[in-house]
Design a binder for these strands. Sequence first.
DNA 1: GCATTGTATATTGGATCCAATTTTTCTATG
DNA 2: CATAGAAAAATTGGATCCAATATACAATGC
Lengths: 253, 253
Amino acid sequence: MLFSKGGRNSRSVAPSPDSAYDQNLGFQGLDVMKFAAVDVRQAASAADIVYEALRKAIIEGEIAEGDSLRQEEIAQMFNTSRIPVREALSRLEQHGLITTQRYKGAVVAGLSIEEIDEIFEFRALIEAEVMRLAVPNLDRATLDRARGYCDAFDRETDPHRWGEINRQFHTTLYEAARRPYYLQNVQSSLDRIDRYLRAQLTFTNGVPRAGREHEAILAACEKGDADLAARLTRDHILDAGRSLMTFLRKHRG
Amino acid sequence: MLFSKGGRNSRSVAPSPDSAYDQNLGFQGLDVMKFAAVDVRQAASAADIVYEALRKAIIEGEIAEGDSLRQEEIAQMFNTSRIPVREALSRLEQHGLITTQRYKGAVVAGLSIEEIDEIFEFRALIEAEVMRLAVPNLDRATLDRARGYCDAFDRETDPHRWGEINRQFHTTLYEAARRPYYLQNVQSSLDRIDRYLRAQLTFTNGVPRAGREHEAILAACEKGDADLAARLTRDHILDAGRSLMTFLRKHRG
DNA sequence: GCATTGTATATTGGATCCAATTTTTCTATG
DNA sequence: CATAGAAAAATTGGATCCAATATACAATGC
């Protein structure tokens, strides 16, 4: 414990709405002034900030499975009280990223091999369907963006970035399906397994293969072949899952 | 606001572990004493109690979409402070049952017609697969239990009970799939749409049809026909969804 | 040396208080 | 009567304190 970069905040944790003002406030008089208004109703609370930082640290493996999360310690790192930390921890627990026991605090959750297997299977089912629904709606701009992520994945050498780029590649395509509820479930599943996925990519030299599979999926999308894109997505996920299972069986004893 | 039955708790909200003790503590001496130990680590916190009561009230429609949830009011009803209420509300928000805005409190979430449509579609995809995976593992005892819920659904005249019995019927069968992650997603989806499902059953006289469909699903399970059970489950859910869509389009203007 | 008991310390759960923000009410003005 | 502004009240977000529980350490007995 804990993640290396302490998120030390100032006393006021809500982001200042000044930035839009500072850049756009000129001396032109009110009637020609243009600025991007910031909706203050969506300003981040202390709990939001702590939640997001912890979530990121967990899914990127910066804090490991089994690590304890001490409320007071985290509160001090973020220069806030325990109350927002408790809310952040409660939210993390709802997402399955930590487990808590009454009076015994929070621990970063691990996943058993069976759980990982199931989540990959689940993803294959859901994401294949989302891909199928997305293909008819894909436009040039979206495909170009996905192409960018596909190339970036191939070029990236920092393992910490693989999960994020992989996610961006897939979700860029999936968004065309216009299925927010599905997508929320996909994001949630990815949060659960990202750290394991990175281990698989790293230790089984899985990046070149994943890159080729991304290429094939993207090609099917460019051809407008929804069934093929769905099948390739499904196989891509199931194969990654199998590879990870094999790796974990060897290294978990 | 609010639900009719106030959950007024005593000052101490943790359940007493005494009940097992009281019933089993005799004067036989310690070495022959038998009692069912209660794992106090799992004792419900105040937040747990408030969360469960609010969740139940929302999914059963006792508090309606758009209703405000006032922290202090709820805290008083449960005879506790606002802190556990805030945690309960945060948890409900993670599950999509309420929405909150900074400084403006919590409101029971509604679902748009598009969202409902998507969730039924999602359920059809997931539950068909779970049903398919479950069928090979179904034993006589499980089928008998499901038969019991199937019959109870047909007999039940209280609309408040339909959602619960419907859920019990389906999940009894699904559990044989041994897919806890899928099942968690099914439960979550059902929480989101149960109140709408009850409206559909009530106002479109959907109970007899649902009953027949349950019978057909159960018969396929008894025959061990996984593909048929999956298809019937999928159709059952999609048809219910369509019926509800039709109803809502007429009544939401 | 090991097991048990008692005490001190650490940590979590909830209560209460204060600060920040929103909503409602009241008053003044045209 | 309608509108604007000020003040009061309501509500939420977070800080601090207290109670409850768990963990660590020291003392004691076998």
